[in-house]
């Protein structure tokens, strides 16, 4: 389990990722802040604690794989890749600009460290399964992580893929759901209810783990539990808040799914996100 210091470090990295998200999306004047912010703690834990990876050798054959199925949350992945050292931080502000490697939705051919192109929702878990099957054929030990949105789970392909993972007993698969309860047109519950969500995954043959997706220690523990579970794929349903870390977005998640904040809003957001989290704030 992560030390106290590690937990603190991860919290601060997550805040750093959130700052980048706001700055990038404001610079681009478009993008998806809500679902990027909700995934920041999960992505921070993955890249700075859980994943076996080497930014100096992005194609290292034994690396763990991370597939970002909710491709509109590209900013949080780009921020994590840059902070990890896959490419210089200065490129982050080119998000969504013509000629930039930082495409609006994730393109595996334009940046190092990206495992799969996404943006059309519902496709990532199938690709993750393919990677896990290849790992098994090659006697590799790598784990394959896949982050999905809760709204995304309305796509039929997600459930086709869920059956595949379970049928082939792909216990090297850890799916993580950024369960922020909102999609574009409204709350997931109102648009097309997924409940009972955990039971659905369970009935599809998965080991289901729940955690607070903003408690980095809990996320670390859930990922470790998923990795160690044998015989079945694991899914972590991470309870999150859309727009997490930016109060006015948390209050109006539907307004900030796919809209950049204004200049003034940016100042307000960054002021809060630039506070360094200290030991004494441990209990939030």
């Amino acid at each position: 389990m992560p030390s106290k210091e590690k937990v603190l470090e991860l919290k601060n990295i997550a805040q750093k990722l959130r700052q980048h998200i706001i700055e990038m999306i404001c610079q681009a004047a478009s993008g998806h802040p809500g679902g990027s912010l909700s995934a920041a703690d999960i992505v921070a834990v993955l890249y700075f604690h859980q994943l076996k990876h080497n930014p100096k050798d992005p194609k290292w054959v034994d690396r763990d794989r991370f597939v970002m199925s909710k491709g509109h949350a590209a900013p949080v992945l780009y921020a994590a890749l840059a902070e990890s050292g896959y490419f210089p931080l200065k490129y982050l502000t080119t998000l969504r600009q013509i000629g930039s490697s930082l495409q609006g939705h994730i393109d595996m051919l334009s940046l190092p460290g990206i495992e799969m192109s996404t943006g059309s929702l519902g496709q990532g878990l199938s690709a993750a399964n393919g990677m896990a099957l290849a790992g098994r054929l090659d006697n590799k030990d790598y784990q394959v992580y896949c982050l999905l949105g809760d709204g995304e789970c309305q796509e039929g392909q997600v459930w086709e893929a869920a059956m595949t993972s379970a049928h082939y007993k792909l216990d090297k698969i850890t799916a993580i759901i950024d369960h922020n309860k909102y999609q574009i047109d409204g709350s997931v519950e109102k648009i097309k209810n997924l409940k009972p969500f955990g039971d659905k995954w369970k009935s599809f043959g998965w080991n289901v783990i729940s955690c607070d997706g903003h408690d980095v220690k809990a996320v670390c523990e859930a990922l470790e539990e998923g990795k160690n579970y044998k015989g079945k794929p694991s899914v972590i349903i991470a309870d999150t808040i859309k727009g997490k870390g930016v109060v006015f977005m948390e209050e109006k998640p539907l307004d900030y799914h796919g809209k950049a904040p204004t200049e003034t809003e940016k100042e307000v957001a960054l002021k809060a996100l630039c506070q360094i989290i200290l030991d004494k704030d441990e209990n939030k």
Binding site: M116, S126, A127, A128, N129, G130, L133, A134, Q157
Partner: peptide
Amino acid sequence: FFDMGVAEQDMIGTAAGLAASGK
């Protein structure tokens, strides 16, 4: 050989993941 069942979309996605891993 992997039979993906009656799930063509999943089959193409799985194929992509296998190919991304050198197959």
